[in-house]
Design a protein around this nucleic acid. Structure first.
Lengths: 396, 396
DNA sequence: CCGTCTTTGTCCTGTGAGTGGAGAAAGTTG
DNA sequence: CAACTTTCTCCACTCACAGGACAAAGACGG
């Protein structure tokens, strides 16, 4: 089965493709309003895109008082695969060229099983989505992994929570298996791109996206571009010292943010509290499920459990303090909170806000919204699709 | 007296001007090797620049085995004014178009006297430089102020240490007085630009430039561009919490980095130590000068005074800890330490390095140089000249 | 001193990108 | 059915740019 072979031949075509991706179908006239090209030149470029099959003209739009326009849209058969590998689960989704999710699967998994096992699972999920008729094949795939990535090569480097992935040629391997171009990035960066494309960060050029899941990371967007740092580890805030001489962390230091607040730390704290008899609510849940997660803490807090609330507040204080520092440093226009623990909801958010607004200078916080992500678990896969589409919709 | 009136007419010309600024005089052939234009097109653009007077052809270069080339250089009469307003002194310098310092003045001053008084002083210094024959006039000026700046307008906003400057139209006022274009930025950003142009950060795209003077700030360069944040307060790290429940700070919080280590804090600590009899060395200097500054502490430390050394180490630990967090977050390729307290030299640097290398993840620090700035007090004025030249050497 | 080679710079022509206007096509409205 | 709008196409003209031919100016060996 032949998939997308063509790429935009020049910057104009790339621009048009991205406009159609982000703005949906458009007439030639509407496109002309957005690109600062003469109508004639625009017509030429659109015609060339039509020839390549990247875009199609389907039907006429309603008249706006004159001749009806032809709708130009991205080829409806284009399919992108978005993969978001977390520490304990995988998300795989198919999107169309406008990055709308057509189908989405989520399965539990352990990254520590290594790339081979995980890839097998990802490929079977991709095959299942294809088999269900959502895609005849994939024109490109984006994949996020929970660790630093050498971006140009698409290779994880020194990932703390996923040993066995270090140096594994993710991009190349997946590209081989799927038979399409692949781009790899850190999962947090993809979440940021997702929220920038279709979530709360639409049309925000400078923002931070803090993802609190099993670990903690931060996507950094400056002037509309993701900042990845020189070795791809930018945003790795989990090991910033939050508590002087605090708890020992897996990294060898003490007092790391991640050791004091993250999905894993919260679960451990809750279990301790339950076992020590400090919370009946949590103890009951522990007995019922045989284990506790952030979800249990959220439920207990919602039920009014004081211990659970205290845990959330304490954690929120830690994260808030670190975020306050980052806000002073980076002066973003928006802070997005996402990841697994967003189930903790308003209590967490309120605590973080209090810390940030109290500790950062008014000039930096005066007009700074701190909000929860809008897309939840789909942020990562949408970001992944966006990543590969950005790549494919650029001149070859 | 007529000054530079022309601006590059297109991106090619702008590129050529910047090449000549950063690389010095060049032949057409050498320029051609750097710009990816045909020789004919290049010749046309160079001719146009010659017509405008922005560049001149002066003499022939030595032969390299064939016809001798004509030297093309930026107009030798072009003069930029670089102004660096600190908390307690002003630096003013004249540069040629290659941003080489032709004359440099430094005078003590107190920003708190307000913009009018300070401007008077700056203008008289600029006049003195002109009178000494270094410049017939100024083609542009860059100015750095020790506080956040709304960059597009060139107006300081809510600057904590310089009340009275809030909202003062620095750019417009100075432009009026000098009769040339002016650009305004934060002093730390200009230091970063200076080190990027002619100092240790040459050809580094992502780095941090920490300036420790009366206060503490950090210049952020991402992908070769200064990141200023949405309100111009990016890099304002002086009020990041360094010590939980630490010393009260002028900003109203406790434990701010600036309250624990900066030129001002260090002077205060040293004075306390001298008065409490903890250091004979410092006490002697206090008696001799009637006051202490970071310079005294540096001298005492150099003389082997244990208390002075301890003060430096303690401060270095604080700054190092904060920098460690920023390194984890931003993943720069270089950290430059500059500002008044660089006189503390190797002791300070060693302490900072220890903290950063100990607290940040190996991937971020593995190949991370942490060095002192190369330009000292000239970094700011060179950065200022670079700022305005970047502006003037861009298409109008 | 002279021919050959190298480097630098200029000139000229062909190509393709891009603009802007004329006008055709396809509507709406009165 | 005429007048007006909006959309799209066609065409002629301009300008940017590449690339080759060629002139200028020097090095170098014989």
């Amino acid at each position: 089965m032949r998939r997308m072979t063509a790429r935009p031949a020049n910057a104009h075509q790339a621009r048009l493709l991205k406009l159609l991706r982000d703005g949906g179908p458009n007439s030639r006239a509407q496109l002309g309003d957005q690109v600062d090209l003469s109508r004639s030149k625009l017509a030429v470029e659109v015609d060339r895109l039509l020839e390549t099959g990247l875009v199609v003209a389907d039907g006429l739009a309603a008249s706006r008082g004159g001749r009806r326009s032809h709708n130009i849209r991205l080829a409806p058969a284009l399919r992108f695969l978005g993969v978001d590998i977390g520490a304990t689960s995988v998300d795989v989704a198919v999107t169309n060229a406008e990055l709308e999710i057509l189908g989405h699967l989520n399965q539990p998994m352990d990254v520590r099983e290594g790339p081979v096992a995980v890839f097998e699972q990802v490929l079977s999920m991709a095959a299942k989505l294809r088999a269900s008729g959502l895609a005849e094949g994939y024109d490109g795939a984006g994949i996020g992994v929970p660790g630093p990535v050498r971006f140009p090569e698409g290779v994880p480097v020194a990932p703390p929570i996923m040993p066995g992935w270090d140096g594994f040629p993710v991009r190349e391997a997946l590209s081989q298996e799927l038979g399409c171009p692949v781009m790899v990035d850190n999962d947090v960066n993809l979440m940021a791109m997702g929220e920038m494309h279709a979530g709360v960060a639409r049309s925000v050029g400078d923002f931070l996206c803090v993802k609190i899941g099993t670990g903690i990371g931060c996507g950094i967007v400056a002037a509309g571009d993701v900042h990845r740092g020189v070795t791809g580890s930018a945003g790795d805030i989990g090991h910033i010292q939050a508590v002087p001489d605090g708890r020992p962390c897996a990294c060898g230091n003490r007092g790391c943010l991640e050791a004091h607040f993250s999905g894993a730390a919260l679960a451990r704290d809750a279990t301790d509290a339950a076992q020590q008899g400090r919370s009946e609510e949590l103890a009951a849940r522990l007995a019922a499920n045989g284990g506790l997660t952030a979800v249990d803490v959220a439920a207990a807090a919602a039920a009014g459990d004081a211990t659970a609330l205290a845990l959330i507040r304490e954690g929120g204080d830690r994260v808030g303090q670190v975020i306050a520092g980052l806000v002073s440093f980076f002066n973003p226009g928006l802070v997005v909170i996402g990841g697994g623990v967003t189930g903790l909801g308003h209590t967490l958010l309120a605590t973080i806000r209090t810390q940030v607004y109290r500790q950062s200078l008014p000039l930096a916080t005066g007009n700074l919204p701190i909000v929860l992500g809008e897309l939840g678990p789909t942020a990562g896969v949408i970001g992944a699709a966006r990543l590969i589409s950005d790549h494919l919709f650029s001149p070859a």
